Amino acid sequence: MPSPLPISRILHLDFSPPMKPKACSSPLVFPAKCEKLLLGEGSSSRARRLPSRLSWCSIDWDQLCLLHPLGSGGFGSVYKATYRGATVAVKQVKKCSKNRLASRQSFWAELNVACLNHQNVVRVIAASTCAPPSQDSMGTIIMEYAGNSTLHHIIYGTKCVETKGKSDGLEYSHANLNLVQCLSYSCAIVSGLVFLHSHLIVHLDLKPANIFITEQNVCKIGDFGCSQKLENAAFSSPQLCQQGGTYTHRAPELLKGEKVTLKADIYSFAITLWQMVTQQEPYLGERQYVLYSVVAYNLRPSLTATIFRGSAMGQRLETIIGSCWTADVAKRPTAELLCLNLQDLSTEV
């Protein structure tokens, strides 16, 4: 990897490191200091090599310039930036002193989509684990800029627009979401899932807030910090569920700590589709009550809304949602079948 980011390009000079870090001797090898950022204190000083599938990981730091923050989450902050003349989004993953392991897992999970390219998936451009200690960052990921408006903003009547001069950099305006748009967005999201699942990648945190809507009105699935790369597509996959994700959208088998399958994303999509159609929150009760009820009593959001009862199309939509969030994993449709069902339904609107 190249030398770490010249931090003075993006932060006040007071944050500059006291000495110039050494460059990596090979684009596939971490120096000892960078290894500690990834593996934590007490690790062997011997350099570790990147997995072959991530050998592309390299950032031209001289071409990167952060502009302003876009938001922050549990494991890091996202900035709007320019990289090699193009507008990008930059995610810096915090060391997260309370849970360093989770922070490292989040960083590497984001790179599950490295080298993949699909119109409905936020693309990773470059990444590096080298970062000055003053950044409190264990890694940097450069992604395509998909805007700062999400499906969550669209569903609940707000559209997020960047504006300069505001403390949060955002302005909100009303937006409507009709059935035609719901089906259009749904087809785009599931198209992204078909692509991800074909590469055995399960997102594990699919929800409106993680689906970006570009200025061209294109849906892009983002935030892969909870994702996993499955070893095989069989439903008996040995990989167990990791903690994380959003409990309202998390499949019941994952809440019980059972094995991860691609069908977990299908369940999450069903909750998301229900939100698009009803423009309501899925659950309003206490978190622990919801978790227990989803697992023990098959609690799901209500399907009694008029839109599900007023027409044959509404009833078909109800059937699709119900099949996607059934507790029986084997009975949930695959992303491919779901995509076909939604496309058929959208032609009737």
Rank of each mutant, 00 (worst) to 15 (best):
I7D: 09
F15D: 11
K20T: 15
A23T: 14
A23R: 13
P27G: 12
F30S: 07
F30Y: 03
K36R: 15
L38K: 00
G40W: 02
E41F: 06
E41P: 05
G42I: 10
S44V: 04
S44R: 11
A47V: 10
R53E: 14
R53S: 15
C57A: 15
L64R: 07
L66V: 06
L66E: 05
L70W: 00
G71V: 11
G71H: 07
G74A: 14
S77Y: 08
K80R: 15
T82S: 14
Y83P: 14
G85Q: 13
A86V: 10
T87L: 01
S97V: 13
S103E: 04
Q105P: 02
Q105N: 08
W108A: 02
C115S: 01
N117W: 04
N117V: 05
H118P: 02
H118L: 07
V121W: 08
C130K: 04
P132M: 10
G139R: 04
T140S: 03
I141D: 00
Y145N: 14
N148W: 12
S149P: 04
V161N: 06
K166L: 13
E171M: 14
S173N: 11
H174N: 14
L177F: 12
N178K: 09
S184I: 00
A188R: 00
I189H: 01
S191K: 05
L193T: 03
V194R: 07
S198C: 09
V202Y: 01
I211P: 05
I213N: 00
E215N: 15
Q216R: 09
G222L: 03
N232T: 09
S236D: 08
S236V: 05
S237W: 10
C241V: 13
Q242P: 00
T246C: 09
H249S: 14
H249P: 09
E253Y: 11
K256L: 15
T261C: 08
K263N: 02
S268L: 01
Q275D: 11
M276Q: 09
V277G: 06
V277I: 15
Q279I: 05
P282W: 07
Y283V: 01
G285H: 15
Y289A: 14
V290D: 01
Y292M: 09
A296E: 10
T306C: 09
R309M: 14
R309C: 14
G314E: 04
I321M: 12
A330S: 01
T334D: 00
A335I: 13
A335L: 05
A335F: 05
L340V: 15
L342C: 02
V349C: 11
